[in-house]
Nucleic acid binder design. Structure first.
Lengths: 251, 251
DNA sequence: ACCTGTGAAGTCATTCACAGCC
DNA sequence: GGCTGTGAATGACTTCACAGGT
């Protein structure tokens, strides 16, 4: 059954560190912008600034790909664009399905960034029969019943889940069973998948909570010159009979 | 000035490692689910499984917050929910503005997860005069002209940018000038902000590219027993005359 | 003179493994 | 016997600093 260990055994990625892989798209974007302005070469310092990282990191990152620069000169923009695209697998195109065409799913379907870089929305899928056939982003929504067929017919290996949390795990299992091996999950749930399947998640609520944490620290920074008061101890007040405490609710 | 060094000087966060902070929301969500099912206590093993991490990591994470568990027993669910909420600053509420009410902005405005945990959408702002006054998610869209006033009137310190890439930096600057110190950026651009301002980004296209990278590696895993063939040179295919797309080209 | 590529050092994060308590 | 809390070990990532090429 493979419990939810999304964790791949080791940084199995023929040499390139995961942290580096995560930055390649950033470099690629910056390079593409330079390319559009017909800039022929760029130094690690300039490119790093455009990508929002420091130059030592960038050079180290590129060193994992090979020696694509020229000492005393910098990097050839077009050449690097090509090398990074190839490394990321963007020279082929990737059919993608989006499952769950609510507000978010529809927004994703309309998002231009999809098409631009080798990703192609092959199908939009929703469980609501009333949605079936309706056009979203110029494409008819299809019903979940046909999920397996759609995946196979289109050779889809990347799926985007934009369903409510409750439906996500089940959709995930169907996608995986049908052959999908990479999933981008927008539902606020932990997905468990078998080994060999990659999951990445995008979670608004988590990001906000992280910001709130730092925001709170900033606020506590007045008053404190020596001992930064931790969050404020507040009465432990455990065991609320029926939780007068945050009756919070998951998304 | 302060160039785009988002980088805070050091992990200034009174002890709690950034990686731990990023997982607290995950634990909180799992705990909330348990709380709703009235589960009174939970072991590190169980909770870790629910949150999709391993138990050693979870125990270490909690150890930064204090000793909130009981040996031989586990953690009191309600108590932990309270402690983590407090640590994250979720016991107060955070007014948030969303700037850029296109497909994505509207989807975010409708997203339930916002309201649920101390975050409150204080205003929706868009640059298009035609949008002004239109209700989205039961709330009238306001014009960018009033951005500064809205921030101040509502004491907003967290802003969400969902504008097109081209407008993001400028919107960011106005938000910061008006007093926002935490930004969640959905626009595919690197934002530069002064020290003391936190930026987190959510970028669909980057996530997909990371998935594509791993996907490509998986594909290359047949055939290879000894020397894993690097990316595979694949025919560059493409080359739009004036490509809005990567006009990829080797040197 | 300038800029890349990279060992070496330093910092941060995860995992191990077990003492201590229930 | 079961489970937490945590030093110590290991591993990953970043930064330094400079040798080496143009």
């Amino acid at each position: 059954m493979a419990t939810g260990r999304t964790h791949r055994p080791a940084t199995r990625s023929r040499g390139i560190p995961e942290a580096t892989v995560a930055r390649l798209p950033l470099y690629l974007r910056a390079l593409t912008a330079l390319s559009e302005r017909s800039v022929p070469t760029v130094s690690s310092e300039e490119l790093a600034a455009a990508a929002g990282v420091n130059s030592a990191k960038l050079r180290k990152d590129f060193s994992y790909l090979g020696s694509y620069g020229t000492r005393g000169v910098g990097y050839d923009v077009e050449y690097l664009v090509y090398q990074i695209s190839r490394e990321l697998g963007l020279t082929q195109d990737w059919p993608v399905v989006i499952v769950g065409i609510g507000n978010l799913g529809a927004a994703l379907a309309n998002y231009g960034g999809f098409a631009s870089r080798g990703f192609r929305v092959a199908a939009l899928i929703d469980a609501d029969p009333a949605m079936a056939g309706k056009p979203v982003a110029g494409m008819p929504v299809q019903h979940t019943d046909d999920l397996e067929r759609i995946i196979e017919d289109n050779g889809v290996s990347i799926g985007v889940i934009a369903t409510p949390a409750g439906a996500a795990q089940q959709v995930c299992e169907r996608l995986v069973a049908a052959g999908v091996t990479s999933i981008l999950n927008f539902a606020p749930t932990v997905l468990s998948v078998p080994d060999g399947v990659d999951v990445r998640k995008v979670d608004l609520s988590i990001e906000l909570q992280i910001l709130a944490f730092h925001e709170q620290r900033k606020a506590g920074e007045e008053a404190a010159a020596d001992g930064v008061a931790p969050p404020v101890a507040a009465k432990p007040h455990r065991k609320g009979p029926d939780g007068d405490v945050p009756a919070v609710m998951p998304a």
